[in-house]
Design a protein around this nucleic acid. Structure first.
Length: 307
RNA sequence: GGAGGGGUGCCGGAGUGGACAAUCGGAGCAGACUGUAAAUCUGCCGCCUUAAGGCUGCGUAGGUUCAAAUCCUACCCCCUCCA
């Protein structure tokens, strides 16, 4: 019977490494669920698996678009589901790996994402309106159209207010009525990697230093040389933004490095808001201990149960 | 030895008699999330308490005052300049 394994957890905790080992042990293929590793030319700053690792185990959804191409959650989910089906077809085990909680849950919980592509003009118009009249005016507008949606969006979160209005404008329907779920038909095993917060921060800091040592500054320089502007969403990621500021002469390198570390800490904290330690759906393992045996036996049990 | 400047919460840094548990920023902690999400947004952040409230508190020790981070005295420490 088909199934899916997902390896989740905060950044730098060792998800990729575990996934590669699982893929080797259980005849699997890896499907990326990291919102930044989809970009070509962004390797060091996104901690993308190495060429060597990718030659050992098949990786999907890495290097699929250029940094200036449009992308979306809906697109990622769509691609991932197709890849999962394909991996099933070939009789192999799909292993979803990544730290982007939104992407992970959209697949694992089966969100039905409103098929409304971004309307740049519409967004700009509303952003202008918000500047003039304040975000509360737009929130009020949303509240009148869709009271349910308004209870689920913070009045100050302009971005989400505009998106809800955008969906209404495009479909004529209430955004809140489009938020449905249709969980996958196959069983999913969630493996969460975690560790003590201080230890995680130490790991993050070491990895940032490594990124610098292996040429992050050059990578960003080349991206800019290729014409990728720093205002692109892809270039707003942690690491790229700060090195960009350094290259513009706005901050010193040590300062940029420290900021990257701090922001990665914050990112890891936000990831735990998606992957709650008390979430009983997730099988948590502390990477400080010996995780190989217990995880393998968990996976074996899961695979046996699912046939 | 002399002259000046300064010591505030984890850090930086405001405040110069009452509205100060102390602006603000950073760090840290908790959370929301159906927009390229590594985005965007919310709350907490001296101690006790679910809260109301209470307690301790602005280098140290005294003092003035109804009231002190803010004024006075002494002491300790740091920085700059002169010797």
């Amino acid at each position: 019977m088909n199934c899916l394994i997902a390896v989740i957890g905060p950044t730098a905790v060792g998800k990729s490494k575990l996934a590669i080992r699982l893929a080797q042990d259980f005849n699997g293929e890896i499907i990326n669920a990291d919102s930044r590793q989809i970009y070509r030319f962004m390797d060091i700053g996104t901690a993308k698996p190495s060429k060597a690792d990718r030659s050992i185990v098949t990786h999907h959804l890495i290097d699929i678009i250029d940094p200036d191409e449009p992308f979306s959650l809906a697109l990622h989910k769509d691609l991932a589901e197709k890849v999962i089906a394909d991996v099933h077809q070939r009789g192999k085990l799909p292993i979803l790996v990544g730290g982007s909680g939104l992407y992970i849950w959209s697949i694992v919980e089966g969100w039905l994402i409103p098929a409304v592509p971004p309307d740049i003009d519409f967004r700009q118009r509303l952003e202008q309106k918000a500047k003039e009249k304040g975000a509360s005016a737009l929130f009020e507008e949303l509240r009148k159209i869709d009271p349910v949606a308004s209870t689920r969006i913070m009045p100050t979160n302009l971005r989400r207010i505009i998106r809800a209005l955008e969906i209404h404008q495009a479909t004529g329907k209430l955004p809140s009525q489009l938020w449905h779920k249709q969980p996958p038909s196959f069983p999913v095993l969630l493996i969460g990697l975690t560790t003590d917060r201080q230890a995680l921060y130490t790991m993050i800091d070491a990895r940032v230093d490594e990124m610098i040592a292996s040429g992050l500054v050059n990578e960003v320089t080349e991206l800019i040389y290729r014409g990728y502007n720093l205002v692109l969403p892809s270039m707003s990621g942690i690491g790229y933004r700060q090195i960009g500021l350094f290259l513009q002469g706005k901050i010193a390198l040590p300062q940029a490095v420290q900021q990257i570390k701090y922001e990665t800490h914050q990112f890891a904290r936000r990831q735990y808001a998606w992957f709650h330690l008390k979430d009983t759906r997730i099988n948590w393992f502390d990477v400080y201990g010996n995780i190989q045996e217990p995880i393998n036996s968990l996976v074996e049990t899961f695979l046996n149960q699912t046939g």
